[in-house]
């Protein structure tokens, strides 16, 4: 189970990158492409800087995920062949969509920085990047939904990946916005969005976690050794998520008080601790996930 750590890191960081993008850019860019009249005026200098910082964060997360994924390859220099089987391998497709996502995000950074006269091209690039990100998430789910792995071949896999992306993405975006440009209204929205996302994650985990959840899928007879996942990890994950949810709730209340009393009340600090707790729960949950499919032999 522990030897899968590069995949644990790759999937969580990759999903967080998609989540940051989806909460910070994609809906607005898609709206601007579909309904050009809805696109606002070109951004001011501070907003432009914030956008570049968020796009750079997405790119950095994707680059880190790509780098860490090399640690699970035993012949990393042969990775140049990895796009050879796009016809049937979801693993090839996953890498294709990750690279495509990275390329469009990089182009988005460049176009935001250069500020072309029209924002149409930028919005189109940002919308395409979002679609690539979604396909990255879809292919990541599909590659684990193997008919040979009943514990993974279940709706929990894509649901769990989407919830991870959105919950971590919303929290990370809120934190970065607060650090770089405190007082923005969108921080409040993201804070409010994080609460139901983490709450939903708790409910999904409690009921549907394969092998451990109340209605989670169970492995039938097979030639694969029994799962080696300790139940304690499942309980630890639920505890961490609940603690994170309480802190997000506290941050929402503190922000309300802050508005009324016009005093600093440490909202960012609460959110940062909540983020760390939710991230830790995701790590525990992902080890639990990989531990379900034991590799026989060495």
């Amino acid at each position: 189970m522990l030897k899968e750590w590069p995949l644990v890191a790759f999937t969580i960081v990759g999903q967080m990158a998609v989540g940051v993008y989806l909460t910070a850019f994609f809906p607005w860019a898609l709206l601007a492409v579909v309904f050009p009249a809805s696109a606002g005026p070109p951004p001011d200098g501070a907003t432009q800087g914030l956008r570049i910082a968020l796009l750079a964060l997405v790119f950095a997360l994707l680059a880190a995920a790509a780098l860490v994924s090399f640690f699970h390859l035993h012949h990393p220099f042969r990775a140049r062949y990895v796009l050879s089987n796009l016809r049937s391998s979801w693993l090839s497709r996953e890498i294709l969509f990750e690279l495509g996502f990275m390329a469009f995000v990089a182009l988005g950074v460049f176009l935001t920085w250069r500020q072309p006269t029209g924002v149409g091209l930028l919005n189109a690039v940002l919308a395409l990047a979002g679609l690539m990100g979604i396909m990255f998430l879809v292919s990541m789910s599909k590659l684990y939904m193997l008919p040979a792995a009943p514990a993974w071949n279940h709706a929990y896999t894509p649901l769990s990946f989407i919830m991870t992306a959105l919950a971590l993405g919303a929290m990370a975006t809120a934190l970065l916005i607060d650090i770089l440009a405190g007082g923005r209204q969108i921080f409040g929205y993201l804070l409010l969005l994080s609460f139901p996302l983490v709450g939903a994650k708790i409910i999904f985990s409690l009921f549907l976690t394969p092998g451990h959840g109340i209605y989670g899928s169970r492995s039938g007879p097979s030639l694969r050794p029994p799962a080696e996942t300790p139940r304690l990890l499942h309980l630890g994950r639920l505890t961490l998520l609940t603690a994170g949810l309480v802190l997000i709730g506290a941050a929402i209340i503190a922000r309300d008080v802050e508005f009324r009393a016009a005093t600093g009340s440490g909202v960012s600090g609460l959110l940062a601790v909540a983020f760390v707790l939710v991230l830790a729960s995701e790590v525990a949950g992902r080890f639990l996930f990989y531990g379900l499919l034991t590799r026989p032999g060495r």
Partner: peptide, 26 residues
């Protein structure tokens, strides 16, 4: 000579026929 050692096929095979060889790292 082409295998990258990602071990994805080990999960895909329901007969667990694919086994990691620590000598060749494939």
């Amino acid at each position: 000579d082409r295998c990258i050692g990602c071990r994805y096929c080990e999960w895909a095979c329901p007969y667990t026929a694919l086994r990691f060889n620590a000598t060749t790292n494939t």
